[in-house]
């Protein structure tokens, strides 16, 4: 009887897996179609002077606490490498310029707004969405605080309010969604004195990047970071130094949510988890019930045998 039970269990499991793969192929087809004129920003690190005005503008635009503008001229913050955190959605870091030590290289870091964002695919409740205009935004009402997005992000961008117990927030650059709705430029782009941040259509800024590298091959490394990295990003960088030396991760061109997304979305599609769970529970209960119906005689028999055996042993001894 036990063998038969196992067989039936395997049958159910196989049905579950096939359902999940079926779901996966369907999910892939339902990917969001990006706008041809989707937005992008080119960060020209050869033009950035590290004034950190973008940091101030970003904090102000997102109502985050900030010190006075004058304090941002203090370049002692460059002593250690910083990452965006819950107090700053963007930070600027300084790197050595071997060609001219007096003119160090500055690199701004923020959410890259990936073309195929891993955070969106990792989010199990759909709190993160990739918009048609290219931006990746977070919805606090849907978020359950699982922090899967933080693990999934290749650029380590989403941050979390660890010290807030009630309604902690996931924070990351939202491409100044609110400002853009009002017809304004993102705060950082707007304030940059050198226009090191060029905001426009992704295809246009990509063209500008290529043109700049072509025109000044002695200045730029022939690499547009973000053109192809993990399937491309909305924010792209050009620089006078190799990107791995600017602490920017070396990434392949295949999107991060590939197979994993297909499997994961497949698993969660079409009520597969509850159906599988209840099927498993049902099977388990059914097996237990069958065992209970049989057990009283069987268990009684074995007990009698054991007692008899013990009696025999004792009899021999005696």
């Amino acid at each position: 009887m036990k063998n038969l039970d196992r067989r039936s269990f395997l049958k159910v499991a196989a049905a579950g897996v096939s359902a999940s793969t079926l779901g996966a192929s369907q999910v892939k087809g339902a990917e969001i179609k990006l706008d041809e004129n989707r937005i992008g920003v080119l960060v020209d690190t050869a033009v950035c002077v590290g004034c950190r005005l973008c940091e101030w503008a970003c904090r102000t635009a997102h109502h985050l606490p900030t010190d006075a503008l004058e304090t941002y001229a203090d370049d002692s913050v460059f002593k250690e490498f910083r990452r965006p955190d819950k107090t700053a959605l963007t930070v600027v870091n300084e790197f050595e310029n071997e060609k001219n030590p007096l003119l160090p290289i500055h690199v701004k870091t923020q959410c890259m707004h990936c073309e195929k964002p891993a955070c969106v695919s990792a989010c199990i409740v759909g709190a993160l969405t990739k918009n048609q205009d290219g931006s990746v935004v977070w919805d606090g009402d849907k978020c359950i605080g699982c922090r899967y997005c933080m693990v999934a992000c290749q650029f380590q961008i989403p941050t979390y309010d660890y010290d807030v117990s009630i309604d902690p927030q996931i924070r990351k650059c939202d491409f100044c969604e609110d400002r853009r709705k009002e017809g304004l430029l993102p705060a950082c782009v707007n304030i940059c004195p050198n226009e090191a941040l060029i905001f426009g259509k992704r295809c246009d800024v990509l063209k500008i990047a290529k043109e700049r590298i072509k025109r000044k091959p002695e200045v730029y490394v022939n690499h547009i970071y973000g053109e192809n990295e993990i399937g491309g990003t909305s924010w792209m960088y050009i620089a006078s130094k190799d990107f791995d030396k600017l602490k920017m991760a070396t990434l392949g061109s295949s999107p991060a949510p590939g197979i994993s997304e297909a499997i994961q979305h497949g698993i969660f599609a079409y009520f597969v988890p509850p159906v599988t769970l209840y099927t498993l529970l049902g099977t388990f209960m059914w097996v237990l019930k069958r065992r209970k119906e049989k057990s009283p005689e069987e268990i009684g028999d074995t007990k009698k045998e054991v007692i008899e055996e013990k009696k025999d042993e004792k009899g021999e001894e005696l």
Binding site: C192, N194, E195, D204
Partner: peptide, 12 residues
Amino acid sequence: VAIPDLKAAYHR
């Protein structure tokens, strides 16, 4: 946007 704006031109 290929040509920097006036503010950027001065500052650069």
